[in-house]
Design a protein around this nucleic acid. Structure first.
Length: 189
DNA sequence: CTGACGATTCACT
DNA sequence: GTGAATCGTCAGC
């Protein structure tokens, strides 16, 4: 379901935790192609307590704690039993920016506020406890205001930070909005 | 139960 | 450019 990652560009992530609403438009995603993708946690249908959420069917959040510090937010995209997910790597703040500054401890709303998967989750207030949340619920969901990016505004590139996945790291499963300051990946790894 | 390590970020050289 | 921070998850004993 790689096309879903492309389709998610321009959609809006809305969170309503503790009565506070924040919203941000998705400008960068990465697809994780389940059983046949070495970069996926569910590679070879590896089924554990953590990856169980990806097997439970699409429309749910999968949040994973990485390096003991960063919470990475994914959207589960396939049918029950097929562990496909899309990682949100970059968003553009729309509302609740004051709250995002509070959560991240930043003073200014510059492009580092929601650039990179760890910052996205932090700014939106998403943590591992939200893993498994249904995205059609009231606290955490995907909205669509009709914004569409033209094909010429979108680029597909290899994924970032998954070099350990060998040849699968070269697959063009990362989708970005060209020239958007909230797209990550300036650094080379 | 124990040890190794990661879908990253940030401070420092 | 390099390396530390930091802890849940998973494989192995």
């Amino acid at each position: 379901m790689v096309w879903v990652a492309k389709h998610l560009l321009g959609k809006i992530i809305v969170t309503r935790f503790d009565g506070i609403e924040t919203a941000a438009r998705i400008v960068e995603t990465e697809a994780y192609n389940g059983a046949v993708d070495k970069a996926s946690h569910a590679y070879n249908n590896r089924r554990t307590a953590r990856t169980e959420i990806m097997f439970s069917g699409g429309g749910k959040a999968y949040v994973y704690l990485c390096y003991g510090i960063h919470h990475l937010f994914n959207v589960v995209t396939n049918i029950e039993g097929v562990p496909h997910a899309v990682l949100v790597r970059g968003v553009e703040p729309l509302s609740g920016i004051e709250q995002m500054l509070l959560r991240t401890g930043k003073m200014k709303a510059d492009n580092t506020l929601t650039k990179g998967p760890g910052n996205v989750s932090k700014a939106l207030g998403i943590f591992t406890q939200h893993s498994g949340f249904d995205l059609s619920g009231e606290e955490l969901f995907i909205a669509d205001d009709g914004k569409k990016y033209k094909p010429s505004e979108i680029a597909a590139t290899p994924r970032i930070g998954v070099d350990y996945a060998a040849e699968d790291a070269l697959l063009p499963y990362r989708f970005i909005v060209k020239n958007n300051p909230f797209v990550s990946g300036k650094k080379i790894k």
